[in-house]
């Protein structure tokens, strides 16, 4: 089997502060990490490769330093890493990013499945995975909490949605986005770390993928950020004590906007 995992280098949001005046993130001095949701996608691909045989190729799009997340994936057991890096990619929104990654998947050829994390913790859009599928014109299953089975023709996924669990069989090739319920990501192995030390990713730019400026980067991105704002902090709420009967009466008063009796 030939699996691809699309990963993203993101700022460690636990360390990010907000510039309230500008409404932007202060990224200076914030460490970059492999998007945590992508580790579940990677583990799922590695797990099925270990079971069925084949290879796992990790792809990321970003500046040259994004190589670090590929190296991390190699230390966890990925076989290959491809870095999509080019000034022409700068400013890509999720549409352009999806299209660019999809072109890379096409260029690899013979891919059976693309695994993505549910979403990235910086943008939180959850659009890139579905975008890759749309661009490739492959079926997609989002929010996968468990991959039940896989053959060279199809896989059966459990899709965790608000109303319950949907069990879907999807023909391959396909794209899935993975939830953290799916697995416990493995810890890097010693051999993986030894390999990662000398690892150099394949680097592809816009020309390698046959992309024109209108298809990627700022020009290929229909999204325009007009403004960003921080939501106002909510009020603290109130705590009431009493018997269940008293509390029910207080809650009814509050919900109906009535003056409380106490």
């Amino acid at each position: 089997m030939k699996f691809v995992v699309a990963v993203k280098q993101v700022p460690d949001t636990a360390e990010v502060r907000i510039d309230h005046e500008r409404g932007t993130l202060i990224r200076d001095g914030v460490p970059s990490i492999l998007n945590p949701f992508d580790t579940y996608a990677l583990e799922e691909a590695l797990k099925w490769r270990d079971t069925l045989g084949g290879t796992v190729t990790v792809i990321t799009m970003g500046p040259p330093q994004a190589e670090a997340v590929l190296t991390e994936a190699i230390s966890m057991g990925a076989d290959e890493g491809i870095l999509l890096t080019d000034r022409a990619f700068a400013g890509s929104d999720t549409w352009a990013t999806s299209h660019t990654i999809a072109e890379a998947v096409r260029k690899i050829t013979g891919v059976d499945a693309v695994f993505c994390g549910k979403q990235a913790i910086d943008g939180d859009t959850a659009q890139t995975g579905p975008g890759i599928a749309a661009s490739l014109d492959w079926p997609q299953v989002t929010f996968v909490g468990r991959v039940r089975e896989m053959t060279d023709r199809s896989m059966v996924c459990e899709r965790y949605v608000e109303t319950g669990i949907q069990v879907l069989r999807v023909t391959l090739p396909a794209v899935i986005t993975v939830l953290k319920d799916a697995n416990v990501p493995r810890i890097p192995s010693l051999r993986g770390k030894m390999r990662a030390r000398t690892f150099k990713p394949v680097a592809w730019g816009a020309l390698d993928l046959g992309l024109t400026p209108g298809e990627t980067g700022l020009e290929g991105s229909p999204t325009k950020v007009v403004t960003t704002a921080t939501p106002e902090a909510r009020a603290g709420g109130s705590i009431h004590r009493g018997t269940p009967g008293e509390l029910a009466s207080i809650m009814a008063d509050l919900l109906l906007g009535r003056e409380g009796t106490r």
């Binding site: 493995r186 810890i187 192995s189 010693l190 051999r191």
Partner: peptide, 11 residues
């Protein structure tokens, strides 16, 4: 099992 997967029994 985790130690094995991380190659620690190889050293």
């Amino acid at each position: 099992g985790v130690l094995a997967q991380s190659d620690l029994f190889t050293i």
